[in-house]
């Protein structure tokens, strides 16, 4: 059997963790995880999340019956930053955990993601609607401004030369007198 590459391993990781792969495939993945640190990291993260799935949820439910309000508050407050990937590992973990446990929270997460998709589609549509090409005008305006600056420089140079000459002439006249 050909050794699987990283991409294939990643696709199969979830099944590997669940133990639903054939012995042969499972061995191949185990072999790959031994030699590839990147996939090994992914495996660890996924295994961790799966752990949350099972043991932690059970424990959580047993302890609390339902979610603590503070956890739900944290979820609502940080959901937006979560989808922007702007939270630290610890907060990410808390959000994910609640999304798994609580149906309403999960719906909120799905809604915000769907809404973002609508925004993105809308933005892309607007971008594609631009018919005018501004590039030539921009370069022309730039050249025009450059010329204007250049001619104003010459103008000032001329003015100062003129005033210096005037001063010299006046001094000469008064000097002679």
């Amino acid at each position: 059997m050909k050794d699987p590459n990283c991409e294939q391993v990643e696709t199969l990781l979830q099944f590997y963790i669940e133990g639903s792969l054939s012995k042969q495939l499972s061995n191949a993945i185990e072999f790959h995880l031994n030699i590839c640190s990147e996939c090994r990291n992914k495996y660890r993260q996924m295994a961790l999340a799966n752990n949350v799935n099972k043991s932690d949820i059970k424990q959580y439910e047993a302890e609390n019956g339902e979610l603590k309000n503070s956890e739900l508050d944290h979820f609502t407050k940080n959901l937006s930053a979560y989808i922007d990937n702007e939270l630290g590992d610890n907060d990410n973990f808390r959000i994910r955990k609640i999304a798994i446990i609580n149906q309403e929270a999960r719906k909120e997460l799905q809604d915000i993601l769907a809404f973002r998709q609508i925004l993105q589609d809308s933005f892309n549509k607007t971008k594609s609607k631009l018919k005018k090409d501004y590039s030539e005008d921009t370069i022309n305006n730039l050249a025009f401004e450059g010329k204007r600056q250049y001619s104003s420089k010459i103008y000032y140079l001329f003015l100062s030369a003129l005033s210096i000459t005037t001063v010299i002439i006046i001094t000469l006249i008064f000097g002679i007198n």
Partner: peptide, 14 residues
Amino acid sequence: LEELIKIEQKNVFA
């Protein structure tokens, strides 16, 4: 520069 503007103009416009 012109090519750069061509690429960026869609973003700015949107």
